[in-house]
């Protein structure tokens, strides 16, 4: 009979589940997130208790069997939140632990290829956030931005922004997953807060943001228009680079969206 291990959705929880498959010697097993797992007649359910010690043991074991890149990729693919990725990762982990050579480049194994492709997509989304975050300066001196990434990538963005904006306070908030990363001039903190829906309304702009903020956005919009070469217009290529769902981030495109 197939066993389904249900975990809490955290990375530690997932690694605890992996530990359990070894501990209980499951051969036919599926690891699923709590909110997604639906009961079927043909499987047995078991709830995984997240245990950081067990998670750590799996993680350390992998460190010996994988390249640093391979190990990072497990985490990155996990952040994709794609349904079923846990089982591809379990396959990856089992092969890594049982085979002598590194298996992360065995692209003819469809599960490994799937992970490699997922990692690519996650990295791409991470880079998009590096690029498309637009800070606005709030009245209390905080550079503030909101995002709704396709994947849960903010943990991957933290270092990039910390290195770059070492001398300003900033906060990037994921509206979809309801948490943000905040840099207080010393270190990064994970925070949750209530973000008002009014925040981007034009009428509220000077309530939240500095007076110059709007002017800088306009300057940037102007720059964007001036730097374009009309006779080279190529919307297809343009959309390939910036699919429409990302336009909401880009203040230089807001006037166009309204039309």
């Amino acid at each position: 009979m197939k066993t389904t291990l249900v975990y809490d959705g955290t990375f530690e929880g997932f690694l605890s589940a992996v530990f359990q498959t070894y501990e209980e010697k499951h051969t036919n097993v599926s690891i699923e997130k709590k909110e997604l797992a639906a009961a079927t007649f043909f499987s047995e359910y078991s709830c995984v208790i997240t245990d950081s010690e067990k998670a750590n043991r799996v993680w350390k074991g992998l460190a010996q069997q994988c390249t640093a890149e391979g190990k990072n990729n497990i985490y990155k693919a996990f952040l994709s939140e794609i349904v079923g990725i846990e089982n591809s990762l379990l396959h990856f982990i089992k092969r890594s632990l049982s085979e002598k050579r590194h298996i992360d480049k065995d692209f003819a194994d469809s599960e490994i290829l799937k992970i490699a492709k997922t990692v690519k997509m996650v990295q791409r989304e991470k880079h998009r956030m590096d690029a498309f975050v637009r800070f606005r300066l709030t009245k209390d001196g905080l550079y503030f931005a909101t995002v709704t990434p396709d994947f849960n990538v903010l943990p991957l963005n933290a270092r990039h922004f910390k290195n770059r904006y070492a001398d300003q306070k900033w906060l990037i908030y994921d509206l979809k997953r309801k948490y943000g990363i905040y840099y207080d001039l010393k270190e990064i903190k994970y925070v949750t807060l209530q973000v008002s829906e009014e925040i981007y309304k034009a009428s509220q702009a000077t309530y939240y943001f500095t007076e110059d903020e709007q002017a800088f956005q306009e300057l940037w919009q102007n720059y964007f228009t001036s730097t374009n070469i009309a006779s080279r217009k190529n919307m297809k290529l343009h959309l390939q680079h910036v699919p429409k769902r990302y336009w909401k981030y880009l203040s230089e495109k807001t006037p166009k969206l309204k039309n």
Binding site: H127, F132, T227, N228, I229, H241
Partner: peptide
């Protein structure tokens, strides 16, 4: 290096 935007001719900004 990062492209923060793209102009309508598809060039990196």
């Amino acid at each position: 290096g990062i492209c923060h935007s793209y102009t309508e001719d598809g060039r990196c900004v």
